[in-house]
């Protein structure tokens, strides 16, 4: 639906929408360079809050913990989510499919307090019955994050799987490639951008989660959102603004690199298809 061109009203909707989405974040970043502790009064440029942020040992160890959990959760979620996507898109009808699709999509909308509480009660029940998990901590958070992140990965990967041209796989098979060979040399490279996108999405979701982690964490495992939340509850602090600025910069950079990589892959692939036809 392009033809009509974009009218005045549409421009207004776009511009005001982006102002609404971005201005609060920019103001937040701007005040991270404020000399004063008051976040709303400008008292001159300073980067001292960044120094304080890096000297805050509790915060730094929470950052490390969160990155570790996010890395492991995203990786596991990509493996499980991709399997689920393949099963949903490629296996046709199988027994229990409706239940399967339901279990994949429900975590997308389930209120976090319910997911958190139910997983905690599962871990408590399991540890009573089997002695595992002996204590709650990074492993239980990892399981919880993998569970809700794999749903997002499954949605991202399945939409890519549905788009792509199966004749490529069939052609490879006709030329004598084995099933596994086809998977690793044709299917995987084509869905790779979706896997990367799914991994990044899972990583940011895990890094961001406060509610579920609060339920299933133990005494020794405080994640970054938990530290931020308890500090925000006590009031506004420029240190949090500094942290926000660094997070936004990191995310924007990662997004840009991922976007650039996917675009390049796409161009290479198109070129290859082109040259294959020209031969």
């Amino acid at each position: 639906m392009t033809n009509a061109g974009i009218g005045r009203w549409s421009w207004m909707a776009l511009v005001s929408g982006f102002i609404f989405l971005y201005v609060p974040i920019f103001i937040l970043m701007f005040y991270s360079f404020n000399e004063s502790r008051l976040v709303t009064v400008w008292a001159g440029f300073s980067i001292k809050w960044y120094g304080e942020l890096f000297r805050d040992e509790q915060m730094m160890s929470a950052v490390w913990m969160s990155l570790k959990i996010a890395f492991l959760s995203a990786s596991m979620a990509v493996v499980l989510g991709t399997m689920a996507a393949i099963a949903m898109v490629r296996f046709g009808r199988f027994r229990g499919k409706t239940m399967f699709t339901g279990m994949i999509t429900a975590p997308l909308v389930m209120p976090e307090v319910i997911t958190g509480l139910s997983l905690l009660l599962l871990f408590v029940t399991l540890s009573q019955a089997l002695g595992w998990p002996a204590e709650r901590g990074s492993v239980t958070i990892w399981i919880a994050h993998t569970t809700f992140c794999m749903a997002y990965v499954a949605v991202v990967v399945s939409s890519r799987l549905r788009e792509f041209d199966r004749s490529l796989e069939e052609a490879a098979m006709d030329l004598g490639a084995s099933r596994l060979g086809v998977f690793f040399r044709i299917t995987l490279p084509i869905v790779a951008p979706a896997l990367l996108a799914g991994w990044l999405l899972a990583f940011t979701l895990s890094l961001d989660d406060l509610v579920i982690a609060s339920f299933v964490s133990g005494p020794g495992s405080t994640t970054l959102p938990m530290v931020v939340f308890s500090s925000v509850r006590l009031g506004v602090s420029p240190k949090i603004n500094a942290l926000a600025t660094l997070l936004v910069l990191a995310v924007s950079m990662a997004t840009f690199i991922a976007w650039w990589y996917m675009r390049r892959q796409e161009l290479i692939r198109q070129k290859e298809i082109q040259s294959a036809f020209n031969k």
């Binding site: 609060p24 974040i25 103001i27 937040l28 990044l200 999405l201 940011t204 890094l207 961001d208 406060l210 959102p225 931020v228 939340f229 925000v232 506004v236 949090i240 942290l243 926000a244 997070l247 936004v248 995310v251 997004t255």
Partner: peptide
Amino acid sequence: WTSFLIRIYA
């Protein structure tokens, strides 16, 4: 993709 908590904090 940036922190939910921080966007609310803003």
